[in-house]
Design a protein around this nucleic acid. Structure first.
Lengths: 241, 241
DNA sequence: AATGAACAAGTTATAATACAACATTTTTTT
DNA sequence: AAAAAAATGTTGTATTATAACTTGTTCATT
């Protein structure tokens, strides 16, 4: 039975004080030296514990200035975990979940969106419509959906979207053009239909179009992915021969 | 303009090698001493970088044995998110998102569940029905919904459920009885209806009952939360006077 | 009295050295 | 060949020190 390390004890101690609210957002933690005295460990162990807290976004360290409890954030508070997702999930799982998440996002967005928000969405659609064939559709695609999730007014949901797009940026981007080139499906039209439903405050239609859009992307990816997979597989076979 | 710390460089270097697949799951990283030589930094900086990777679940360290790249996991790979979520989200956001996620889970579960799975769900319902009034309904509630998400056969979805319940465990638990006591709503009956729909393979009905159940919990919490909030607020007012 | 500059003190980042506590590998013994 | 012991390797912790920064205090100037 392994004993808990001193650095883990430091981590647990501080985490508990933060989660319980005793250490307030924005507040400065005791110095490493002080924590070492309080907990009767060396500064090395304190630093290890705090490094972990910093890695998951609970605290931020300022060289020479101290370590501060992070304020709860509206955006990107899950971004530290992008590597975790990259390491543990695959594209199709993400996309399947996106079906549910984007469906919910667009419903809430349709309920909550402002005129300014609608205008912004319209601008993105406009840019999609005028995009050259080799233009960066990925960025517009991402902007569109992230704006929708932002106007869902559910922060957790928006942050899951943010991290999913972060992952997609890193995993899909190389093959994005292949999956979403105009010949494969009506990529602009699908977004425009979602947009129109939002403008008309028709949340059911917005959901239907969104799910349809995601399913189309998934199906297309499956076709493309199978081809690419075969090629890579055959290439590996040749290497081993 | 701040320079990137040496420990961050170590983190970035290793993370890239893991995400790119050069360091394989299950593989042992070079020792701290070797990495220090390779990257021309002291062991302190190597340790700090690795501590961060460990915190987000990419590696695990064995005292005396080395540091290993974690294998992608089926379950609980998002557990590292829990403190961050605890710090950055609130209950209602979580529950609102649960509405969509549980809805999807129950649909997929209804499609995918096995006879053994159905039996397990039935056992939980049975225990719910025979639970004493001061019994631990929370655990049964949690088991039920997590079993549903498990049989959704979407790992990412299941893992999001796992962390949500982790967060609920820590935030709601103290007030759980108040929100879910029998007088507030038909807690057993609602789960039984969901279960029956699953047994009958009626995924639409399962979804409807699930959404209804979640909405009921949300509404109940809102009523209870407002009362509790008023009391806490008044208590704080008295303190400051 | 108010403001800015200089200095002192405080704090995190990094390094070197050492030892403890473990895990893994190699060698020796049975 | 298998088991036990020894050697080697590796992470966890400690101590001491310095570098590089931030924050607070004091002093000088206006």
């Amino acid at each position: 039975m392994k004993r808990k390390s001193k650095s883990q004890k430091v981590y647990d101690y501080i985490e508990e004080l933060i989660i319980s609210g005793e250490y307030k957002p924005g507040e400065r933690l005791p110095s490493e030296a002080q924590l070492g005295e309080t907990l009767k460990v060396s500064r090395v162990s304190v630093r290890a514990g705090i490094e972990k807290l910093s890695a998951i976004g609970l605290v931020n360290k300022k060289k020479g200035g101290g370590t501060y409890v992070n304020r709860p954030k509206n955006d990107n508070y899950l971004s530290v975990f992008t590597p975790t997702l990259l390491h543990n999930t695959d594209y199709l799982e993400l996309m399947e979940l996106r079906r549910a998440l984007d469906s919910l996002s667009v419903q809430l967005c349709t309920q909550n969106i402002t005129e300014a928000g609608t205008r912004k969405l319209g601008k993105i659609i406009d840019r999609m419509e005028h995009l050259e064939e080799d233009g960066d559709f990925f960025e517009l695609d991402k902007k569109f959906h992230l704006l929708v999730s932002k106007y869902s007014k559910n922060r957790f949901l928006h942050n899951i979207h943010l991290i999913i797009w972060d992952v997609l940026q890193k995993t899909l981007r190389p093959n994005y053009t292949k999956v979403t080139e105009p010949s494969t499906y009506d990529r602009v039209g699908e977004h425009k239909r979602i947009y129109d439903a939002i403008v008309h405050k028709d949340e059911n239609l917005a959901r239907i179009y969104t799910v349809h859009h995601l399913e189309k992307v998934i199906d297309t990816f499956k076709c493309v992915y199978n081809e690419a997979y075969q090629e890579a597989f055959e290439k590996n076979q040749k290497k081993e021969t």
